Amino acid sequence: MAFEFHYSKPRYLIQALGCTAMLVFVGGFAYGSAGLYTLPDGGGMLTVLRVFFAVLILLAAAVALYGLVQAVTVVATSAPAVSCDGQTIRLGRKHRFDWPQIGHIEYVVRKRNTRTEDIAGRRQLHFLYVQPQQGRKVKFDISFLDAPPDEIVRSIHRAAPHIHIKGWHPDL
């Protein structure tokens, strides 16, 4: 039984748009505060403020660039986030397991710590913890894929009914 689930593209398009807006804001802030650096050097507190604003601008630009690169990479790639070809399961780009390698899978639903909902309107985070028979447990976020998390877990169960999935029951 083969299946593929991809990352939800609208979420990452919104992230790319937000990061682009943040880069424009940071660029405008840097341009507007350029006059701060042309003042005669008075030493003391003014020098500390100059360094603080320079570091703040660089950190904000780095965060915005990281988010933009992540979003564009996810949108541009057509690689599935979770896929199965009948013999193996692949989680993202890094993790690939043959069915006999897997000891058990754990499905965990966690509440968000923030009071506000995110852009997609989801208040819960869904994770799969895959425990191979030898090695470390792998955590994989399935909250922002193009199918509901229950459908993803149900597909895994159909592909490998012999593997126990903790925290999920087929009748749910």
Score class of each variant (00 low, 15 high):
L68R: 04
A76I: 02
Y12R: 07
S83Q: 13
M1Q: 12
S143H: 04
K139L: 11
R96M: 04
A60M: 14
V109M: 08
G42L: 11
S155C: 11
A159E: 11
T116Q: 10
Y37S: 13
A76M: 07
A60G: 13
G135P: 06
P148G: 00
R50P: 06
Y37C: 10
H6G: 05
I156M: 07
F144I: 01
M22E: 04
W168S: 04
S33T: 11
E106C: 03
P161T: 12
V82I: 15
G67P: 00
L36C: 04
F53H: 08
D118S: 14
R110L: 06
A54Y: 10
Y107H: 12
L56E: 04
L49Q: 05
C19I: 01
L145N: 05
L145A: 08
A16D: 01
Q70L: 14
Q131K: 12
E4P: 04
V108P: 01
A60L: 15
G43C: 09
K137A: 07
P148Q: 10
G44V: 09
G42Y: 06
Y129V: 01
S83F: 08
M22F: 11
C84K: 09
G44K: 03
R110P: 03
A79F: 08
E106V: 07
A61K: 05
L46S: 13
I102F: 02
A16W: 07
D98H: 09
H126W: 05
V72S: 03
I105R: 09
G43I: 01
A160E: 13
H162N: 12
W168F: 13
V75I: 15
I152W: 05
R115F: 12
R90S: 02
L125W: 06
I119D: 09
A61C: 11
L58S: 12
P148T: 09
H95I: 06
G43D: 07
S155D: 10
R123A: 08
R115T: 08
I119F: 15
L91V: 13
P149H: 04
L58R: 02
P10Q: 06
P100Y: 00
Y129W: 06
I142Q: 01
K139T: 12
K94E: 04
V26N: 06
Q124A: 08
E106G: 04
A2S: 15
T20I: 14
T47Q: 14
L56H: 11
P132H: 01
F25I: 10
Y107W: 09
S78P: 04
K139V: 03
K139W: 00
Y7G: 13
H95A: 06
T47K: 14
S33G: 06
L128N: 00
P161G: 10
P80D: 03
R122Y: 09
R136Y: 08
R96Q: 02
T88N: 12
